[in-house]
């Protein structure tokens, strides 16, 4: 503490005096990088550039019409679909299955995940089962689901439900395991009830993990949706794509794929919104 006051005046002067003016230079900057800045317009520009190149390639004949139709043709197919009134029928059927399957799968998954996270008996009994069934491609079970739930909506919804259930269970219980034990201790030390600790400490603490689980389960749900619709459906984006493929109507096929991409983007945007709202407490 007293060091500073005892430094002799001369020593300080010396320290300044020995400075070599000729070689004086700034300390080289080595920080920076490894940090992401939001660059808003970059994504649409890249997207539009690819579309433009593709269109030019098709028009100039560089890309053969048989191999890949121009984006404008795919767009035309989409407009045809919209004017014939079939667009909503396909998209609506898909959205319904996705919504019901994903919601039920997620709710069940969160419930079972919480049980596995909170109760030793549930963990011992259910976790091996979850681990055994998670890697099974649910689409392989579709014939089984058709027998159980019928050829209609039931089997498709069930496929999506099972597909989203397992990753949600795993994300949820991992989230519960990751909740700071000290916070739980704190809750106990203030005499909070078990239910309060679960509701006010464990669930919010596991929320980041649950939401990132949603991202994964939503994309799994889209993949399963299309697969299920390809096997037996009259309407739905998957059915539309399958029909287009069977007829080699490549413009319609591209239009269908574009619809799926837009669907994926919308869902990811919605989950992003939910994260912003629910996790605003994080930096």
């Amino acid at each position: 503490m007293s060091h500073e006051t005892t430094v002799p005046e001369t020593a300080r002067a010396d320290a300044v005096g020995t400075r070599d003016e000729a070689t004086l230079r700034p300390v080289p900057f080595r920080g920076g990088g490894f940090v992401h800045r939001p660059l808003g317009p970059v994504a649409p520009i890249v997207f539009l550039a690819i579309l433009a190149l593709w269109e030019i390639g098709s028009r100039s004949g560089f890309i053969s019409q048989i191999a890949l139709p121009a984006p404008s043709e795919a767009f035309g197919a989409l407009v045809d679909l919209a004017t014939s009134g079939m667009l909503w029928k396909h998209v609506g059927a898909s959205l319904y299955r996705l919504f019901v399957g994903w919601t039920l799968g997620s709710l069940l998954g969160i419930a079972v995940g919480l049980a596995v996270g909170l109760f030793s008996l549930a963990r011992a009994g259910l976790l091996p089962l979850v681990s055994a069934l998670f890697p099974v491609p649910k689409i392989a079970l579709l014939p089984l689901f058709i027998i159980w739930f019928g050829i209609g909506e039931g089997s498709k919804v069930a496929t999506i439900l099972f597909g989203t259930f397992f990753p949600t269970v795993i994300a949820t219980y991992a989230g519960v395991d990751n909740v700071d034990r000290n916070l739980i201790r704190m809750g106990q030390s203030f005499g909070l009830s078990w239910l309060s600790i679960v509701r006010k400490i464990i669930v919010p603490g596991a929320m980041p993990a649950i939401l990132s689980g949603f991202r994964i389960s939503a994309s799994i749900a889209i993949v399963l949706l299309v697969a299920a619709e390809m096997i037996g459906a009259e309407f739905g984006i998957g059915a539309y794509i399958l029909m287009a493929g069977a007829l080699f109507a490549l413009d319609q096929l591209i239009a269908g794929v574009a619809l799926l991409s837009v669907l994926g983007l919308c869902i990811s945007w919605l989950i992003g919104k939910a994260e912003k709202r629910l996790l605003s407490w994080r930096a």
């Binding site: 000290n182 916070l183 201790r185 030390s189 203030f190 006010k200 919010p204 407490w281």
Partner: peptide, 23 residues
């Protein structure tokens, strides 16, 4: 019997007043 913890043990998703409200 009430604790005060070394690492504060505040819920990061609750505001100051809601952290007090919790107990």
């Amino acid at each position: 019997l009430t604790y005060i913890f070394q690492d504060f043990a505040l819920l990061p998703w609750r505001t100051v007043e809601d952290n007090v409200s919790l107990v």
